[in-house]
């Protein structure tokens, strides 16, 4: 493992473990009152990991789009590799959001799936970025693959906020009663600290993944280059 990614990965992992400790042993439990009974909402603990995962995925998908735009602007191959690596890492985190989201929906609302704006957005995201990989594998020529990949990564990144806003638009859909809100008011002191530590750890860990992926892409390119040298040689 390269030094930079090793340091980032271990720092990220340490922070994530600290996040687990803070979430379970320091942050206060959320309590809801239902019919005069006080219930500890244990499922709320999922929040401390689920939301950092979601935000990390956003960061990397947006980065993928930005690098894609930079590739189109400069035609430098390295930007295209950065875009691809960022989208792939972002996609891993999108998948994680789906897994954890489904589990949370089950724990909080007693159903496996709910057509709720955030979950819907991520389902669309999953499908859209699956399309990104299908598109890349469906183009043979390397330069066209890079071009179309970069273009679609931009379109997809633009579409993310639009999907989210549209999800809240629909007046026809039944509204599920909100069991708890995630608004800032309920997040103070130890809760916020636990959340921020997890958030930061997740970002560091994801960055290390991104560096590894980028190394792999670059090494592959070197191999192609050497192979050509041998053939021409």
């Amino acid at each position: 493992m390269k030094k930079s990614s090793l340091i980032l990965a271990s720092a990220g992992a340490l922070l994530l473990m600290a996040g687990v400790y803070l979430a379970f042993f320091v942050a206060p439990d959320t309590v809801v009152r239902i019919d005069d009974r006080e219930l500890v909402q244990f499922s709320q603990k999922i929040f401390y990991f689920h939301v950092p995962v979601a935000e990390t995925s956003f960061v990397f998908l947006v980065l993928g789009g930005l690098f894609g735009a930079m590739f189109l602007g400069t035609r430098k191959r390295s930007y295209e590799q950065m875009s691809y690596a960022a989208v792939e890492v972002g996609f891993i985190f999108v998948l994680l959001v789906m897994i954890t989201g489904v589990l949370w929906t089950r724990a909080a609302w007693n159903v496996w799936w709910e057509w709720e704006p955030r979950l819907t957005t991520f389902l669309v995201l999953t499908l859209m970025y699956s399309g990104y990989f299908v598109l890349r594998s469906s183009v043979q020529e390397e330069s066209a693959k890079a071009r179309f990949g970069a273009i679609f990564s931009i379109i997809a990144a633009v579409n993310v906020p639009l999907t989210f806003v549209a999800g809240r638009l629909d007046s026809l859909k039944p509204v599920h009663p909100k069991v708890f809100t995630l608004q800032g008011a309920s997040m103070e002191g130890p809760m916020l600290a636990a959340f921020l530590v997890s958030m930061f750890g997740m970002l560091l860990f994801a960055t290390s993944l991104y560096i590894m992926r980028l190394d792999l892409l670059r090494a592959r390119e070197d191999i192609e280059y050497l192979k050509e040298e041998l053939e021409v040689g």
């Binding site: 219930l39 909402q41 999922i46 891993i92 089950r106 909080a108 993944l209």
Partner: peptide, 26 residues
């Protein structure tokens, strides 16, 4: 939801995050 009902899902969330990330690293 009370602890008895919720804990498998909470553990599932934390384990699945670690599992997916570790598999990707490997």
């Amino acid at each position: 939801m009370e602890f008895q009902e919720a804990w498998p899902y909470v553990v599932g969330v934390y384990m699945s995050i670690w599992a997916v990330l570790l598999i990707y690293v490997i």
